[in-house]
Amino acid sequence: SSQSQGISSSSTSTMPNSSQSSHSSSGTLSSLETVSTQELYSIPEDQEPEDQEPEEPTPAPWARLWALQDGFANLECVNDNYWFGRDKSCEYCFDEPLLKRTDKYRTYSKKHFRIFREVGPKNSYIAYIEDHSGNGTFVNTELVGKGKRRPLNNNSEIALSLSRNKVFVFFDLTVDDQSVYPKALRDEYIMSKTLGSGACGEVKLAFERKTCKKVAIKIISKRKFAIGSAREADPALNVETEIEILKKLNHPCIIKIKNFFDAEDYYIVLELMEGGELFDKVVGNKRLKEATCKLYFYQMLLAVQYLHENGIIHRDLKPENVLLSSQEEDCLIKITDFGHSKILGETSLMRTLCGTPTYLAPEVLVSVGTAGYNRAVDCWSLGVILFICLSGYPPFSEHRTQVSLKDQITSGKYNFIPEVWAEVSEKALDLVKKLLVVDPKARFTTEEALRHPWLQDEDMKRKFQDLLSEENESTALPQVLAQPSTSRKRPREGEAEGAETTKRPAVCAAVL
């Protein structure tokens, strides 16, 4: 046999249950609850290399294929790409003598399909299967379609040439079993990697079954959420508030809700932002270029202005709740996480202390139980975000031990490091100062900020419009641009040419 590394010779191994799959997660993409704000000051410096380099560890398999027929071997997927077919160049070659004697062998292509993985959001991997055969590759009886790919989820059954000719079961060793999710959700989405997690739940990458488009699904544990919100009269209202707010909003710089499922837990389906959180971008770069800050901040102002015009105060604006559309420097941003939002009543007064301390406005800290506050709290938070983006460190921090965090904020005395700000323009610093004003009545509004000289930049605004146009074009394009080929190089076993392929839609398939 010419099988590559990772293939075992026996096809009769006992199949494990899916609970053996491991679970991976990374930083929070968007969480309903406010958790302790991640610290920006503690960015690790590059460490000196050791005298002796450690040995390379043996790579762990990321997936496993269990053979369902004699003549096929099990495969431990270690590499990122595997070709399957009769050709000797394939990493998994159909060359077992037992297999060659079967009637089905002649229906398999020289290069029938490939399984591979690509880097997705949060640097996690996504597994795909890609059909290159004349007679078809099927996943859970659905045709992939020649020249098309679809994501592979845990426990997928792979069939060759005929939908009933099941050859492998695919085990993704990095994700959960699909069966743990409600059927209504599974009918519409293929669940994938964990993108982030918080005290009350997690955010998962998923794929729409009909279109193969990526989405983010925010899962909120009702049990954990009820415990964490025990002081509230009705904890469920917080989730329902977020859903109702998101459904009503329609702005290019605000995250869109696509679906909602109320089962044992809450499942909020949101558009996916491939670039992750602004927080991670700031930490990764230490600070952002001023031109990049301007492009992002302009969009934040437009989003918050839209919220305020619609009578909504976000109340928890922070870099973790600003998501980026891509890994590119120039990209769209979207505001997310409306769990603490407040729809303005007639009095415009709110007395609930919520939000993240580092970003809270002075009037929030001094008015607990005594007075109210209004939309100006969001403008203060925007000032803190702009400060961080321009400088790479927070204006107020618990680690300045000589003054408490509350006193720093209520006095408006931010930590100004001259040598850092020497590289920032006077106009940018002036806008920061106009937003970090203790008196909410004297603080800049979103309208005033948008009129500030720093943002009178036609090149930046043109760039934003171009990015918007690109997004609109990409969302308007159909996901499947061509029909699967019906040509046949070899006959199917026991049926006429093209008899099955043309009847089945290529579900969740995307043209390369």
Rank of each mutant, 00 (worst) to 15 (best):
L323E: 02
I335Y: 04
K433M: 13
C379A: 05
M350L: 14
P505Y: 08
K334T: 12
Q479Y: 13
E448Y: 00
H452N: 02
E398T: 00
E309R: 09
P252A: 06
T486C: 07
I254M: 05
C253F: 06
T356G: 01
K463M: 04
V304D: 04
E244Q: 15
N472G: 12
L317K: 00
L468N: 05
R287T: 14
R375K: 08
F260R: 08
N472E: 08
A496V: 08
Y373G: 05
V384R: 14
C354L: 04
C293G: 10
K413V: 08
A482G: 11
T352R: 02
V269T: 08
N250C: 07
T352G: 03
E274L: 11
E320V: 03
P484A: 07
V480Q: 03
G276A: 05
I255Y: 10
Q465E: 00
Y359E: 03
A496G: 07
D378P: 01
D262P: 10
T445P: 15
G339P: 01
L386P: 02
I417C: 13
I312D: 00
Y414M: 02
I254L: 11
K489E: 10
L302P: 01
F297C: 13
A361S: 10
C293V: 06
D265A: 11
E419K: 07
D280C: 12
K441Q: 15
W380M: 00
G345A: 12
A482D: 07
H314R: 05
I255G: 08
Y359Q: 01
S326F: 13
T475K: 05
E244N: 15
Y298M: 02
E328N: 06
E274R: 10
T347M: 14
W454R: 03
D337T: 03
Y359A: 01
T502L: 12
Y306H: 06
D457F: 09
A509P: 06
L467R: 10
S348Q: 14
I343C: 03
A263C: 06
F297S: 09
E277G: 04
A263T: 06
A509D: 06
E264G: 06
H251L: 10
T446Y: 12
C389L: 05
L431A: 01
L481D: 02
K286A: 08
Q327W: 00
L436R: 03
N321M: 03
F260D: 08
T446R: 01
A291G: 11
L317W: 08
L349Y: 08
D337F: 00
F396D: 02
K434N: 05
L246C: 00
Q299F: 00
I343F: 04
L324M: 09
S348F: 15
E320Y: 05
E447C: 11
R287G: 15
P357D: 06
T475N: 02
S404C: 14
H251T: 04
R488D: 07
